[in-house]
Every structure is written in C-alpha cells, then in structure tokens.
Write a protein that binds this DNA or RNA. Structure first.
Lengths: 226, 226
DNA sequence: CGGACGGGTTACGAAACTGTTACGGGGCGG
DNA sequence: CCGCCCCGTAACAGTTTCGTAACCCGTCCG
C-alpha cells in the first residue's frame, strides 16, 4: 500500500489527517518539523503532505531540500496553508508543488486531493519501472544505475537523459525532444548541453559506452551493440 | 501561418494572449464562450487554447464536443486553469489535453508551450511506420535501414530520400518534387545534387541497387525488380 | 559521323556536426 | 567561510556530410 508522510507542527492536525488516511488504507508517517520530515522523506514515501508554516524550517525550505536530493526530488508534495495569500506563492514558486489545501482542513477534500495525486501518478505513467538495456540496468525508484552488476551513481540530469533514452531503446531521439522532455519546453538551454551530458553518460558507461549511438544530424539512440 | 483559437471569458486575457501570439506571427481567432468556440473550431485551427472555467459551457464540455466531432477531434488543446487542483483533472481525464497553463499566465511560458506543441506535432506527432520495399526495410523511428536483414547506415539526406521514395513505392518522383520535400521549397540547390544522393543510395543498396530505377526525363522510382 | 541530352561517378573544398575539455556560477555540506 | 559537485556554456579540434563541378558514357537524332 502507498505511504504518505504528513508534516505539521500542530499535533491535532497530524492526528486528524493520520487517522483519516489510515482509515483509507494508507501507511502514514508523521513528522512535527522540517528536520524530521527530511529524515523520513529518505524512505521515499509516495506523497508528502507538508505544512507551510513551521518553526525553524518552513515548508519552502523543506521542499527545496527535497527537490535537491536525488532520491527525493520526484516525490509529489501537497502543501497545507492557513492563509489563502500563501496559495499564490505555492503556485508562483515553481517548486513542483503538486497541490495545496487551505486550513481548516476538509477531510473529504483532503482525500480527494490525495486520490487525485495517485490517479495522476498512475495515469500519467509516472510509475517508473525498472529498465534493462543490455548490461545496463536502471532503477528509477531508487535513482540507481547498475552497469554490469556494479552500482554507478548518476547525477540527476544524466540519470534522466539515460532513463529517457532507455525507455525508448533503439529509437532515435533528437536533442530537441530531450530538451523538451527533461529540461522542459520553456527551458533556456542550448542544445549542445545535451552533448555534454551524453559524453558524461558514455564516460560512466565505461566499456559499454557504445550503447549510446550518435546519429549525425538527428540525435542519439540507446541500445546494446549487435 | 498557423492558426490558434483562444477561448476565455476574460477579455483582458484574450487580448493579452492574442497580442502576443500575433506578435509571434500566428493567426489568432478568439471566442468568449464555449458555443462560439465550437463554431470557430470548425475552421480547424492548428491549436486551441481553452479556459477551463467559463459560464454556461465550461472547458470540459467544449473538449468533449471537440473530440466527438470528426473534423475537430485531432486538434491539440492547451488548457488554461486558475487553480492547480484542476490540473489533476486535466491530466486525469484522458481528454487528449496536450498541455496546460496555470494562471496568472506567463507569456514566455505560453509561447514556449505553443511552440512545443507545434514541434511535437511536426516531428513526433505523426507515427512513422516502418516500410518494407522488397528486401529493403526502413525504420524511421530508429533511423535505421535494413538491407537483406543487414543493418546499413544512411546519412540524413540519403535516408530521407530513400524514405520518401519508399513511401511512394512504384511511383515516379521528379527531382523537383524531391528537392521540395526534402530540401525545402526555399532551398538553393542544383537538381543534379539529387543524382549524387541517388548514386550513394544505390551504392549502399549493393546487390539491390536496381531497386532504384531511373526514368529518363522524369525522375526516379523505387520498387523491387519484377 | 558529330552533337545534343540526360544521367552516372568521382573528387574536393566548405559547411555542418559532434566529442571533449575547460571554466564559471550556484548550491550544499562541512 | 571553504571546498566539492552538478550544470550550462564556450571554444577548439576532428569527422562526416553535402553540394558542385567536371568528366565520361550511351542514346538519339539529323
């Protein structure tokens, strides 16, 4: 079953949310401050419900750190906020906030949002299964790459590029497509940047660097050699 | 130039979007409600930017009707939404929404999304199916050519020429037509250039070089020998 | 028989593309 | 505050691809 991390300094709210989510069958982790939240986030819950206003480390900071961590950057976050004026910030800042809820919390609304997140996750194909291309294995959920059985660390961008290519094994992928998919359609990035990442990926692939083929004038293609 | 239909009940937004899209060279149609939108959609714009919240007929209904109409079902739609909670619905319901934008609108983002839609449409949009002509197999998505089961590399231009001929197997294609289709109508290329590429293609086809027939005074034709 | 046409081939310089390395900025952790 | 890592950009070098021109051949005439 899916795990949800609930973070709020108000014990009443934590209890209320936990009770209701458990009743729905979710596994619930809780934290009363940002530090503990980050600690628990490393367990990779499927969703984080996060209070904006907290002593010491507020919600923004927590999210920033989550997004920075390779293992936690893809976890969806739903904000809890007391003031509706904060809503604009949630939407304005592009922190990858999945959604928000305004206090006082309406339980039906909460559950609806939570279900919506999971629906989106599964329908949008965000369920990232492990992929193997020849001797290269990619484990998206753990942000891990195994090359010939050995574990190799890939920084975020390189990882995403590799994953994208792997999901389309054998297909030619243009730089433009990669930029759209990974950097976002509104990115301000030169396409030669892709080359550099490809170079680094090849470097890490070591003996298997020939998995990444260059198609001049077209793009790249990932596949095991014949 | 491409035509975009903008639908929103807020005049300010319509004006803002129209102004910016026009500046980018698009032809812009506008509607203030769902009914007018459907009316204009019959003109088959290349893209529809659609507000979710509108009086009388909301965005969902408009899209449903668009998808129902044979002439309008393939037009990509980008949603405009004020609340992030609606985003889930956009993605959750599989209405074929191409993308979405959250208000307040960022113009650079809007333009980036629009451009992305057109890029996707022209490049990956069409599902390029594999083609076989005799012993020659062309796999467009992988940018691969198999000749008698053996993989042979074709540089971009040669690949495109071969593909173009293969898509018209048995039909005579003039140099002029090829130049138009592959080099672009605004290219400044001598038509004898085509001959050179044909020669290279024949060379790579090896034993099957006779697939490419010359029709004197007309052009070329690709087909397996009788 | 000579010449005009159309086309096949080859050679070569220019342009286009990519691989790689180096550098600067930013963020995070110590 | 310092140092390390990730990332985007620029610059340089090495290839590949492309477009033309040139030359050659066969055919079809008068």
């Amino acid at each position: 079953m899916q795990t949800i991390l609930v973070v709020d300094d108000d014990k009443d709210i934590v209890d209320l949310v936990r009770y209701n989510l458990r009743k729905e069958g979710f596994t619930v982790l809780t934290a009363r401050n940002g530090v503990d939240a980050l600690e628990l986030a490393s367990q990779r819950p499927d969703l984080i419900i996060l209070d904006v206003m907290m002593p010491e480390m507020n919600g923004w900071e927590v999210v920033k750190k989550l997004k920075a961590g390779a293992r936690t950057s893809t976890i969806p976050v739903v904000f809890l906020t007391a003031k509706s004026s904060e809503v604009d910030e949630v939407l304005g800042l592009e922190l990858g906030a999945e959604d928000y809820l305004v206090k006082p919390i309406s339980i039906p609304k909460l559950l609806a949002r939570v279900r919506a997140v999971f629906r989106k996750r599964t329908s949008a194909g965000t369920v990232r299964e492990n992929i193997a291309v020849g001797a290269v294995e990619i484990l998206p959920e753990q942000h891990l790459v195994m090359i010939g059985g050995r574990e190799v660390f890939f920084p975020r961008k390189e990882f995403e590029v590799l994953l994208y290519l792997a999901e389309r094994e054998g297909k030619a992928v243009s730089r433009e497509t990669l930029l759209d998919a990974i950097w976002g359609s509104d990115a301000h990035v030169v396409d030669r940047t892709v080359d550099v990442h490809i170079a680094k990926i090849r470097d890490k692939l070591g003996a298997h660097s020939d998995y990444v083929e260059t198609i001049k004038g077209v793009g790249y293609r990932l596949r095991p050699p014949a």
